[in-house]
Simulated assay, not measured.
Amino acid sequence: MLITLAILAVYVFIAVYGIAFTKDTSHFFSKDYTTVLKGLCCIIVIFVHIPNIYGNAIQNAAGSFGYICVTLFFMFSAYGLTWSVKHKEGYLNNFFRKRVLAVLTPYIIICLLKAICGFKVFRDGTNFVFVIFMFYIIFYLSHKYINKKYRDILICAFVIFYSLAGQIANDFFGYENIILKWQTESLGFMYGIIFANIIEPFKEKVKKQYVVKIGILSAVSGILGVTYLKYKYILFAGDYILRIILGISLILLLFTITIHFRIGNIFTKYLGKISYEVFLLHGFVMSVYNVLKLQVSSGVYILMVILGTLVIAAVLNKIDTIIIQRIANPTKLFSLRQSKVSKIDT
């Protein structure tokens, strides 16, 4: 467990390195802010998926926040979409070409990698990709064809329906598959839409009695956390309702603390840049290690999974970027090539 503790110590150091208190809240929910948090979240997601044989108490404690991290992935995605529609004219015109490419390109490459290695293709990140892609379609159709007054309400209603349907099917009928996953986490998509509409009032509210609000939310989160540990085995009321309330409390606590702290550094920003690849790849890396039948301690295994995932994710991100740019902007790339050819000729 000492190695796992050391990993967490490095993680915490990287998370707080360069952090600075500021009265200015313009950084809150900026692109850098959400990128940094996604980078930090992707490491926690790795912790939660470590096989039991290599698990330990520290890894389990860190991994217990995994569902909050996935909720934030959904939330930041929906926030970005909603903000872009409001502030970027004609954003929906290239919606599928840009957003779908960004989601599917890394996923398809990883699926091919799994197939080549003889692993099951539709595992690990498939659930997330399916759900986020479904939400993207609903988002697009709502903003394209539904009255502005009702579109956000319709999207949020669909997210709630999806979440409830999945939880009821799982709790009371024992039915769960790729279509009905991320029951509590998927609600983050709704949170993102709501937050995009209340971001400025939220800032103003939090700035008043800032320390008091942190204290209250910390106490509430602690009480809810202990309650959840005791009652999480109760169907629906515990494993769904209480889990949602705890998640909201922890997310509000995180946002309240960071509203006056400018977070991020070169490490966390890069982690955020490759966070989606990390999310999709860590299961594949563990599958490779399982085939190799490694005889290592828990801490060494966790370290190997993190390092292996980060290295492959960095390479894959480079490939993704090239492919997405070529497909999304073929005219621009063609013009650049023609320009280079002209310069050589002259």
Rank of each mutant, 00 (worst) to 15 (best):
K38V: 05
A313I: 08
I137F: 02
P106V: 05
L104K: 07
A9S: 13
N290E: 09
E200F: 07
A61M: 09
I153S: 05
I14L: 11
I146T: 08
K144N: 05
G39L: 04
G39K: 00
L333A: 15
L113T: 15
I319R: 06
F65V: 09
V211F: 02
N94W: 11
T25F: 07
F236L: 09
V278Q: 01
G225R: 00
V226K: 12
T22N: 12
Y233M: 13
V296C: 09
L246K: 02
S218M: 06
I44G: 05
T268N: 09
G18W: 00
A62T: 08
V226N: 14
I302F: 01
F29V: 01
L271E: 10
K213N: 10
E204K: 11
M75C: 03
T4G: 07
I259F: 01
T256G: 10
G188L: 00
C111H: 01
N94Q: 15
R243Y: 02
C41I: 05
L229C: 02
V131A: 00
S297V: 09
N52E: 14
R243M: 01
Y175E: 10
S84H: 01
Y91H: 08
R243N: 05
E200V: 06
I312S: 01
L246S: 04
V121D: 13
L294T: 01
K232D: 11
T35A: 00
K343A: 15
F202P: 00
I109G: 12
L333D: 15
G264A: 01
K149D: 10
Y175V: 03
N93D: 12
N290A: 06
F119R: 07
I53R: 15
Q325A: 14
T268Q: 07
Y150Q: 09
L37S: 02
K230S: 14
G39F: 06
E200C: 03
N197H: 04
T321R: 13
I110F: 09
L92Y: 08
I58P: 11
I19S: 15
F29H: 04
G264K: 06
I146D: 03
S287D: 14
L294A: 03
K88A: 06
Y107F: 06
A196H: 00
L5Q: 11
I323V: 12
R337F: 11
Y276F: 03
N265L: 14
G222A: 12
Y162G: 01
V70R: 03
W182F: 02
E176T: 15
D171N: 11
I44M: 04
L316C: 09
G247E: 08
I251P: 03
T4Y: 00
Y175P: 06
E277R: 07
V278F: 05
G118M: 02
F261V: 13
F21P: 13
S30Y: 06
K232P: 09
M1L: 15
V341D: 14
V300E: 09
I257E: 02
S339I: 14
L37K: 03
I132P: 03
S298A: 14
S77P: 05
I344W: 14
G188C: 00
D24H: 03
S218T: 04
I19L: 12
I44D: 02
K318T: 13
I214M: 10
L217N: 02
P330L: 06
V341T: 15
A165Y: 04
A237Q: 10
Y175D: 03
L224C: 09
T126D: 11
G125T: 12
R97E: 10
K98V: 08
C69A: 02
L81W: 06
Y150W: 10
E200M: 04
F13K: 13
E185C: 07
G80I: 00
